[in-house]
Design a binder for these strands. Sequence first.
RNA 1: UCCGCGGUAGCUCAAUGGCAGAGCAUGCGGCUGUUAACCGCAGGGUUGUAGGUUCGAGUCCUACCCGCGGAGCCA
Length: 432
Amino acid sequence: MKPETYINKLENFVDQQVTLKGWLYNKRSSGKIKFLIIRDGSGYCQCVVFKGNVSDEIFELADKLTQESSFEITGKVKKEPRSVGGYELDATDLKVISLSQEYPITPKEHGIEFLIDNRHLWIRSKRQVAILKIRHRIIKAIRDFFDNKDFTLFDPPIITPNACEGTSTLFEMDYFDLGKAYLTQSGQLYAEAGALALGKIYTFGPTFRAEKSKTRRHLTEFWMVEPEAAFYDLDDNMELAEEFLEYIVQSVLKDRMQELIELERDVTKLENIKRPFPRISYDEAVEVLKKKGVEFRWGDDFGAADETMIAEDYDRPVMVHRYPSEVKAFYMKRDPENPKVALAVDVLAPEGYGEIIGGSQREDNLDLLLERIKEHNLPQNFFEWYLDLRRFGSVPHSGFGLGLERTVSWICGLEHLREAIPFPRMIYRNTP
RNA sequence: UCCGCGGUAGCUCAAUGGCAGAGCAUGCGGCUGUUAACCGCAGGGUUGUAGGUUCGAGUCCUACCCGCGGAGCCA
């Protein structure tokens, strides 16, 4: 039943007869010759149906195929530079599996609303297939990177009893007799427990934000990878982050060049992504903004436009460290040399893609952490288990979170995060 | 939540307050190398919803609905 081969393996079958199974991507005809473009998920192949080579029935059947009809086609493989993918199938037989009804996504332009309404079909188009393949390669690179460094995959809960950081708006649900529960906004606190158990761990899963963000950089459901390592300080954390990003980008360049070209991505911009990355302090970043004429008050967090201006001076991601502690989460450790700033780091991607990583060294002192919890008006009883991590063998430790879709978006050169995930969830859309 | 823009054929879009149109898609016909193929013919409309102004509204006014772009917040 399964296909004997796939389009991306045709180079091994030149001058041999094969049967491909797939869907009709497009069709052109010119009298006694028809060109069927078949896609099978692995690639695209032009099949030539010539009246002299097939029976009249087969020739007419080729005419009946509508866009996205499923079919199998048999013929001899030829090398053909004029054809998509470089190979062509000289058809001798054709079987229709299922004729498609009138397919809504035509080979012309469409508006974004229509495409998102038809996301379940839109993902069949070339551009979306390329993005999803790159997404998969990025995910594989993430897992390989940490696995090769002896980080253990550690899955935090998705249902949580309270806000991890106490700031964001969360999706709320009724949890039996225990009252309200929430969808996780970060696996961070649980990751710390994991690091103190296993040394080096990473979490990788979906995360949820109920904020009414309505921009190209936001989804309500997105994927995040969060490494956490015991005995790592902020510098170790930054080293890990830059090696990590370099590995991801270089892996995609090595294995998904064809897809990047399909997306018309300027790959020279990606080839620059090599260590070391520039590191500047928040203070230095503020100076840069002021020099560029931005009115910026020390103590504020950077907006999207500020991030772009800071990043535009560099051809690779820039690591901005030591943010004012007041704009950062309660669990971030303050710099012993300057308690007004936290040992935090944000990594800003080039080309205006903004923050793709946020991380920090964590507060490992029980008393200071208790103070932070009070300052942030967080319910201490929910954090008792987290405080235990400081009561029972506390150690310096650090970690960061990388937003998968923002990374996919940056590497693919996308305009909007919604193309970086199969079925985007946004404030005004939860379908299909 | 706030600011800005939009909603007309299956899709992308036109239409000075005066006959609701084109391209693509679909159907039929033509073409032996097409690359979003091309050429000819045909079918296809509650102009987002409700109300108002007017001899006459896709067009002007009011309200609502839906979406898009951005801000804040963040990955």
